[in-house]
């Protein structure tokens, strides 16, 4: 399941990961799993007070999806640092207009190797990552460091 970083040079891309289109059910499931019940993520009557058309995904769901992308490449136990800056909101797909709204809700995480070094007596790799929707809008960017 993991990749061989010894075979990747600095600047080379890491395999990308595409999640399923995010639905309101995904948001409710994440709210329950994480305990983040900010109504911004499930209650339309709340977001309308603030002039928004629909609920948005938890930033941490997008980072969680990025975490899935990262741990598809490196074992969880080898992760040393994981850091992101949130750049944009993600609206879920609407089931009554799925074909026209799924792109804004489909997240792809991509990245590249930016450094290889030794620290604490182990070989480590640093990769920059970015999560974008299928329209090209950036949701978060950041990096991870892992022992390899």
């Amino acid at each position: 399941m993991t990749i061989k970083f010894a075979e990747l040079n600095i600047g080379e891309a890491i395999p990308s990961y595409t999640a399923n289109p995010i639905t309101r059910t995904d948001l409710v499931r994440y709210a329950g799993a994480s305990g983040d019940f900010n109504p911004l993520h499930h209650d339309n009557t709340f977001v309308e007070v603030f002039g928004m058309k629909r609920v948005i995904a938890h930033g941490m769901l997008i980072m969680g999806i990025a975490g899935e992308a990262v741990t598809a490449l490196v074992d969880n136990k080898n992760l040393r640092k994981f850091s992101v800056r949130f750049a944009g909101m993600t609206e879920p797909a609407d089931f009554n207009d799925f074909e026209n709204t799924k792109k804004r809700a489909t997240i792809t995480v991509s990245g590249k190797v930016v450094n290889k070094f030794e620290e604490n007596g182990e070989k480590r790799v640093k990769c920059d990552i970015v999560a974008k929707d299928a329209l090209g809008s950036t949701k978060l960017s950041g990096f991870f460091i892992a022992a390899v």
Binding site: N38, L40, F46, V49, F50, H58, G59, M60, M63, K81, F82, S83, V84, R85, F86, G142
Partner: peptide, 11 residues
């Protein structure tokens, strides 16, 4: 709460 955004997260 209505103006709250999550800016960054790091572990």
């Amino acid at each position: 709460l209505g103006r709250l955004l999550h800016g960054e997260e790091e572990y």
